[in-house]
Design a protein around this nucleic acid. Sequence first.
DNA 1: GCAAAAGTGTTAGAAGTACACCCATGA
DNA 2: TCATGGGTGTACTTCTAACACTTTTGC
Lengths: 232, 232
Amino acid sequence: MMNSVNPYVSVDCVLLGFDGERLNALVVRQTNAEKGNDTGCYKLPGSLINMDEDLDDAAQRVLKQLTGLVQVKMVQFKAFGGAQRLANPRDSIWLERYHHLEHHLERIVTIAYLSLLRIDRKMAKLDSGYEAQWIPIDELPQLAFDHSEIVKEAVQSVKKMTALDPTMFFDLLPRKFTATQLRKLMESVTDDKVDIKNFHKKLAKMPYLVLLEEKEEGVSHRAARFYKFKRK
Amino acid sequence: MMNSVNPYVSVDCVLLGFDGERLNALVVRQTNAEKGNDTGCYKLPGSLINMDEDLDDAAQRVLKQLTGLVQVKMVQFKAFGGAQRLANPRDSIWLERYHHLEHHLERIVTIAYLSLLRIDRKMAKLDSGYEAQWIPIDELPQLAFDHSEIVKEAVQSVKKMTALDPTMFFDLLPRKFTATQLRKLMESVTDDKVDIKNFHKKLAKMPYLVLLEEKEEGVSHRAARFYKFKRK
DNA sequence: GCAAAAGTGTTAGAAGTACACCCATGA
DNA sequence: TCATGGGTGTACTTCTAACACTTTTGC
């Protein structure tokens, strides 16, 4: 027997990446809107949970289904449970079709997950008829449900979490990165400028950073040296 | 028509107080277990949500029902959704009776809320047959459901939240408090000792603290001066 | 006076801030 | 050689850690 779906609880995943300048969010939309219903409406990757499925497992499942990504460390950051979350009929109709439900959805509480992800990670083929896309968070269009609100709160959470644990930044960078890349990232998250010299002093004191011999190539100015992140 | 209950989603409130030495949690239990079913089992104040009720409203409602407290600022800190949360039949039977439900509960996701509260706040009369009690968190008995786990995670959240915003500590103290009370509180949350002189220097630099002229009375040693907290 | 807890002075080193300066590279 | 961005030196201030000391109170 197929898993039954819990029609009251969903998970949604906010995946954030860094393009060198700004934070981006991964959003999905239907490519071929068969019944002309859903075209152009971006959403966060998400799904109702199954009856016998833990929340964390549901988040991993939906991420895999929609992007092919596995073993991504996601953390729950907030539940969204406004009674009016399904106010827009477009949204609830879409959900009912997507999950092949017969009855009308009344009200859904969603548990939002967050992950920081290298923006160049390869995505596998998507679930039937969906495409995923990175969009800078300050250029996001209006998303379905309250997903725009969820993204905003996710960014707030990232600020708090990275303040407590700066090593989270390295999930957003390539394996080798320059001081400037890291600095731009930190600046884009904390919204303030950092003195370059003082920043280098700080780097020198981070026990989990290794300065490599390798340098940038093909840049029309002095080549920057690469760092790598060494966990403990 | 009466509100219908959402049988899949609940809220639970972790209320933490400080007794001068340790953090305490507020737990409730049935006083007269009519059918001999529930005696002695402590729980967090919580309830299934109503169909048309926002999560935050549900948390405020249940707190008022069980303790009489109103206008307590609570924040959501985590959702607990393990598929096996209702594994113990004692727990699900209790819930079904409490909410006068006819059908069997399958699975509940709970949204946990957290509040820091002065331990001497007056509680109004409780909902029929329940009593509330402050218990030091390191002396809590096994709680119903996964509530013991929820309390543990709440304490972790408090550590993180107060690190980012130390003014939260003042929710746990009386309006007037001594440096030692504040220090003991901080030590009990962060689990480390603080040098007293250095602590006083820190206090002097907190813009939101006001040193009063008033002193302790009736103590058999030098009387401590009181501080008060002035927001902004 | 004594015990007990409140509260102070001083120091050395670490960490953060500000700002002026030099270096490497392609065009 | 110039523009561009990478990277450095140094002085100054603030924070932190350590530890020995003085004050007030009831008994």
